[in-house]
Design a protein around this nucleic acid. Structure first.
Lengths: 197, 197
DNA sequence: AATATTTGCTAACACCCGTTAGTATATTAT
DNA sequence: ATAATATACTAACGGGTGTTAGCAAATATT
C-alpha cells in the first residue's frame, strides 16, 4: 500500500493540491484527469477522495490561495506612505516574485479560473475586479500628482498585469534568466517605456 | 433537414471553423464538445464530419490562419525602410487590429495552441519562436541605433505581446472602448512608459 | 427526367471521465 | 493488545466524448 509521503507540517491534502497545480498548469484543468493526478501523487484515483471533496475543490484552493496573497499585498501597499510610482513598482515586483516562487499556482489561477463553479466563480471574479480597481486608483492618484502620464488607468493596469503574466515562457525555456535581472528589466520597460528620451 | 447556411464565397467548412473559434474561445478547446459545436452550427454532431476530418483539424485551421497573417505582416514590416521604433509601433498596431477584428481566432490561437497535436504542434511552436526572434531583432537594431533603451530585447517582446493579448477583457466588458483610443493608449504606455519625464 | 454528388440524419461504438460503495490494511489512541 | 481512526484498494456506476456506419433527402450535373 502506497501512502502519500508528507513532510512535517504539511497535510496530505496540501500535497495533492500542489501536485494538482503542476498538472493543471501543464495540461489545463479540463484536460487533466483525476487518474493523471493520482499517478503523479503515487496512489489510485479513488484514494484521492479521502482527502478532497472534488476536482473543482482543488481549483478553488489554488485560485483563492493566490488571490488572497495578492489582496494582502494590496492592503499593505495601499496603506504605505510612498509615491504612486513606488507603489506601482512594489506591486509589479510582488507579481514577478509570485510568478517566480509560486509559478504553477499563479499560472493556474490566471488561466484556468473560468472553470470554477458558482458561487466561487463570481466570488473570484469580484475579487479580481476589486484588485484591478484598487490598482487603477493608485495610478490615477499618480496622474493627479503629475508623477504619471495622462493615460487611461484601467488600460494601464491590464497592460501591466498581462505583461507580467507572460513570464511563463522563461520557466519553460532551459535558459533560466536570473530573476532579479528579469525583474529590473520589466520595471524599466513597463515603468520607463521603450523610447530613449 | 437543416442545411448549413452559407454566403457567397464561403464554404460550409469555413462556417464551422468560425463557429468553432467562438466556442473554443468561450469554453476552451477541451471543454467545448462537438455536440456543442453542432448546436451552434444548427446541425447534428455527426453531420459536421461531412466537412471536417476531426476536432483537432478545426484547431489547426484557426491557429495557422492566425499565424500566417502575423508572419506576412512581419515580412512586410521588416522590409520597410522606417525606424525601429516605427516598426515596433506598426507591429503593435497590427496586433491590436487583429485582436479587435479577429478576436475569437486570435484568442484561441494564443491560449489553446497547446492542444494541437504533432506535427502541427511543433510546427506552430517553431513559427511562434521565429516571430519573436524577428521582433526581438528589430528591437535590438533600435538599441544599436540609440532609438531604444538598453533593455533585454526578448524580454521586451514578451512583454509587448502579452500586454496586447490582454485586450480580451474589453471584449467581455459591456463598455466597449473606442478601438483607436485603445490603440493609442497602448502605444503610449508600451512605447513611452508610465513615468512623466 | 435521370443520375450522381453533397449534405444531413439516427444509431451506435469504444473509450475516458469524476465519483461512490464496500472492503482491506496500516497507523494512532486507549 | 485492542479498539478506533485514517488511508488505500478494487470494482463499478452513469454519463459525456469523438467518431463511424448506414441510410435518407436535398442539390447539382448530365
Amino acid at each position: 500500500m502506497a501512502r502519500i509521503k508528507i513532510e512535517k507540517n504539511t497535510s496530505r491534502k496540501e500535497v495533492i493540491v500542489s501536485k494538482a497545480a503542476a498538472l493543471f498548469r501543464e495540461k489545463g484543468f479540463k484536460a487533466a484527469s483525476m487518474r493523471d493526478l493520482a499517478e503523479s501523487v503515487g496512489v489510485e484515483a479513488a484514494s484521492l477522495y479521502n482527502h478532497i471533496k472534488s476536482k473543482t475543490e482543488l481549483l478553488h484552493e489554488i485560485c483563492f490561495g493566490v488571490a488572497n496573497r495578492f489582496m494582502h499585498k494590496m492592503d499593505e501597499v495601499e496603506s504605505g506612505s510612498i509615491s504612486a510610482i513606488e507603489k506601482v513598482e512594489q506591486l509589479i515586483r510582488f507579481h514577478i516574485d509570485e510568478m517566480v516562487n509560486h509559478y504553477e499556482e499563479v499560472y493556474v489561477s490566471d488561466r484556468e479560473w473560468k472553470y470554477l463553479s458558482d458561487p466561487y466563480l463570481s466570488n473570484f471574479q469580484t475579487q479580481r475586479r476589486m484588485y484591478r480597481k484598487r490598482f487603477a486608483a493608485i495610478i490615477e492618484a499618480g496622474i493627479r500628482n503629475k508623477e504619471i502620464k495622462k493615460i487611461d488607468a484601467p488600460t494601464a493596469v491590464l497592460i501591466l498585469l498581462h505583461a507580467i503574466g507572460g513570464i511563463e515562457s522563461w520557466h519553460r525555456s532551459t535558459q533560466k534568466i536570473n530573476a532579479s535581472n528579469l525583474t529590473d528589466n520589466m520595471i524599466t520597460i513597463l515603468v520607463g517605456g521603450l523610447e530613449l528620451k
